[in-house]
Amino acid sequence: MSDKPVAEMSFEEAMAELERVVNQLERGDVPLEQSITLYERGAALKKRCEEKLKDAEEKVAAITLDADGNPAGTKPVEGL
């Protein structure tokens, strides 16, 4: 498990660590207290991934297309 704060992770970092956490939990060979800690970390990682995906979706949605379907520019997304 990484010591890097979840809030500082990129989508790829959070997803990779989430996969490691899930694998550990699925094996079922960790003590109960560690399982709880892993579950909490997994929940935070899942939330981070969802936030990063939402940000990306908003950026994609802000791209406008011209009549030929080509990007014509972007419009500002609220909060960016």
Rank of each mutant, 00 (worst) to 15 (best):
A14G: 06
A14V: 07
A14C: 11
M15W: 11
M15A: 15
A16W: 06
E17T: 08
E17L: 04
L18D: 10
L18H: 12
L18P: 06
L18Q: 10
E19I: 12
E19S: 10
R20M: 08
R20S: 12
R20G: 05
V21Y: 00
V21K: 01
V22Y: 10
V22S: 03
V22A: 07
N23L: 11
N23Y: 12
Q24W: 09
Q24M: 14
L25K: 07
L25N: 07
L25T: 08
L25Q: 06
L25C: 06
E26K: 15
E26Y: 14
G28R: 06
D29W: 07
P31D: 14
P31R: 09
L32D: 10
L32M: 14
E33V: 12
Q34V: 11
S35D: 10
S35T: 13
S35Q: 15
S35L: 04
I36L: 14
I36F: 09
I36Y: 07
T37R: 08
L38S: 08
Y39T: 14
Y39E: 14
E40C: 09
E40G: 02
E40T: 14
R41Y: 03
G42R: 01
G42Q: 04
G42V: 07
A43S: 10
A43C: 05
A43E: 13
A44Q: 15
A44M: 13
L45G: 03
L45V: 08
K46Y: 06
K46I: 03
K47C: 01
K47E: 15
R48E: 08
C49P: 01
C49T: 13
C49Q: 04
E50S: 14
E50Y: 09
E50H: 10
E51W: 12
E51G: 11
E51S: 13
K52R: 13
K52E: 15
K52V: 14
K52I: 11
K52C: 11
K52Y: 08
L53M: 13
L53F: 07
K54N: 10
D55S: 12
D55M: 12
D55T: 13
D55R: 12
D55L: 09
D55H: 12
A56F: 13
A56W: 05
E57D: 13
E57A: 13
E57R: 15
E58N: 14
E58S: 05
E58L: 12
E58M: 13
K59T: 04
K59F: 03
V60G: 04
V60S: 03
V60K: 10
A61Y: 01
A61E: 08
A61Q: 09
A61K: 15
A62F: 00
I63N: 00
I63H: 00
I63W: 00
T64E: 07
T64L: 00
T64M: 06
T64N: 03
T64I: 04
L65D: 01
L65Y: 04
D66M: 01
D66Y: 03
D66G: 04
A67R: 09
A67S: 15
D68I: 00
D68H: 10
G69W: 03
G69Q: 11
G69I: 07
N70Q: 14
N70E: 11
N70D: 09
P71G: 11
P71H: 09
P71Y: 05
A72I: 05
G73D: 00
G73L: 02
G73R: 02
G73C: 00
T74L: 09
P76M: 00
V77C: 03
V77T: 13
E78F: 02
E78R: 11
E78Y: 05
E78V: 06
E78M: 06
E78L: 01
E78D: 08
G79Y: 03
G79D: 06
